[in-house]
Computed example of a mutant assay.
Amino acid sequence: MPRVRELEVFRLTLPFGRRSESLLVKLTDHGGMTGWGEAVSPHPKTWARLEETLGALLIGVDWEHPDAVPSGDSAVDMACWDLWTRMRGVPLAHAIGGTRTSLMATVRLAPDSSIESLVSRVNQQVCAGYGHVTLDIRPGWDVEAVRAVRQAYPALTLAVDCGNAYTDLGQLVALDSYGLEVIERPFAIDDLHAHASLQDQVAASVAVEARSAAQLDDYLTLRAARVLLLRPTAFPSLSEARRAHDRAAAAGWDIQCAGGQGAGLARAATVAVASMPGCTLPCDVTQPPRNNQIVTPIVGANGGVIAVPFTQPGLGHTIDEARVHRLAKESFHA
């Protein structure tokens, strides 16, 4: 039974790419075992709330399972799972029901300065071993870009991520003639009827990013999509993410796990969730830059394949604590 004797919380501004922020939680039990968790781009009030409440919630308190810790925070929940599974000597992936030891990966490509440059970047990724590519599109950068990539690579499995940027169906329906596997996040998340209308008109599967099991139920009721884009760290707990997985899989939906930002811990949790049986589509943890990560081995794809750490307990990665302290802009402990 875990009992935390010390906790530390770090706020990191990552040095590369978009210089995003991560909040790391480290829990240490009385035997010296540690568990780590991460929230990527946390809510501005999260830091103050954890500083006020986390010590009383965890220090010296016995708990039998991570679900017994009512933190409501993904980083704390992840740290509890990491500690709990490390104490039992089991991988996190196994503990939450994962079965795969490796995952196929998709690589995500942002809009480029030209169509020619985009096709060149796709060529680089195909040569690196990727058989699945996701293009980020937006109004004005969609049909021509997809057409050019499809003409260059007729057999490539191709998806598009619309970033919730569209308001009408026209361009998205036009994309369907290019053999897309998935159209991700086409409309505002609460516009269920637009999603349902698009799914009725295209052969591609529409993917929605639900952030609670209840929100997913609304999409299931309207048959507004056929794919759940599951971002585990967007849920308050890994158990809640697993419930969403179970409901989508029971409805016959495909599931794609995504979580390519952060310092590595959130990516590791995404890989663990993606090893569950219902996660049938390639996993997206490949967004650069890899240099932001504070874990060993780095979480990412090699030749289009992501390894699931099924021989190491917990998240399955070693934390570079010296680098954590160097990158920390702020910290507190209790």
Rank of each mutant, 00 (worst) to 15 (best):
P2C: 13
R5S: 07
E6L: 01
L7Q: 03
S20A: 03
K26V: 12
G32L: 12
T34R: 08
T34L: 03
T34S: 08
G35E: 04
G35T: 05
W36Y: 13
P44V: 07
K45L: 10
T46E: 11
L50W: 09
E51Y: 14
G55A: 13
G55C: 03
W63T: 04
P66Q: 00
D67W: 01
A68N: 12
S74D: 11
S74G: 06
A75R: 02
A79K: 00
A79G: 02
C80Y: 12
R86P: 00
V90R: 09
L92Q: 12
G97A: 13
T99Y: 12
A105E: 10
P111N: 09
S114K: 09
I115N: 06
I115E: 05
S117L: 14
L118K: 08
V119H: 00
S120I: 06
N123G: 10
N123I: 12
Q124P: 06
Q124G: 04
Q125Y: 14
V126P: 05
C127A: 14
A128I: 00
A128L: 08
G129S: 07
Y130Q: 10
Y130W: 01
L135C: 00
D136Q: 03
I137L: 06
V146I: 00
V149K: 08
R150H: 13
R150K: 15
L156R: 09
A159D: 08
V160R: 04
G163Y: 05
N164F: 05
N164G: 07
D168A: 11
L169P: 01
G170Y: 00
D176S: 10
E181K: 15
I183D: 06
F187G: 04
L192W: 12
S197Q: 14
Q199E: 06
A204I: 03
V208H: 06
V208A: 13
S212K: 05
S212W: 02
A213K: 11
Y219H: 14
L220V: 03
L230W: 00
R231S: 14
P232Q: 06
A234Y: 02
R243I: 14
H245A: 06
D246T: 03
A249I: 10
D254S: 15
G259H: 05
G259W: 04
G264D: 13
L265H: 09
A266N: 02
R267T: 06
A269S: 15
T270P: 07
V271L: 06
S275F: 06
P277D: 09
G278M: 07
V285D: 01
N291W: 12
N291H: 13
N292E: 01
V295S: 04
T296R: 15
P297W: 06
G300S: 01
G300W: 04
A301P: 08
A301E: 10
A307R: 10
L315R: 09
I319A: 04
D320A: 02
V324Q: 11
H325Y: 08
H325F: 11
R326M: 06
L327K: 01
A328S: 15
A328Y: 12
F332Q: 10
F332V: 01
A334K: 00
